[in-house]
Amino acid sequence: MSHEHETISTSGDDDPALHTLLEIARSQETRPTVALLNRLKAADGLNWLCEALARDCDGNAVDAEALLCTPDGDVEFLRTQYGVAKQCFHGARNSEERLRGLLWYLLIMAAAAAHHDERLSSQPAGVISNALLELAPDLADPWGDLLASGALAID
């Protein structure tokens, strides 16, 4: 191994890595991104994805691919929808609605970063890019690529 190092010191005071590892060890089932991953992996996951992206968070029919996957998307619209998606995620009446809000929330953040060089969230870059990259491998393209590009633009 080129990066041989002690996994964690057994002496000394608290360190952030120890906290991180204890957090990783906790069951991940209740984390929102894991819930979204599980929804996408369900038998009807692809249909659910298509339906979720057919309308924006205000309920209007949209061409999500044109809006999110190219630099031609209206950045002002993204800023507005970011707020609506966030509200939808936090204030949803049921889990499906909540996951739909989260999906839009993450895709909008990725699109703003990847195509408009804009950071919409004030959360630490590492937290956002980790969340985007966590979902990217399991999301069909172009959405998986969009999340990965967004993560790299933010990281």
Partner: peptide
């Protein structure tokens, strides 16, 4: 090794991808 680099050393996925010669999506997986 990637797990340690990312979580213990705090190296970003982008940098990990360069170090290990894999794309960032693969890094995350």
């Amino acid at each position: 090794r990637l797990f340690l680099r990312h979580h213990m050393d705090g190296v970003s996925y982008r940098q990990c991808a360069v170090e290990f010669g894999v794309d960032p999506k693969r890094c995350a997986v």
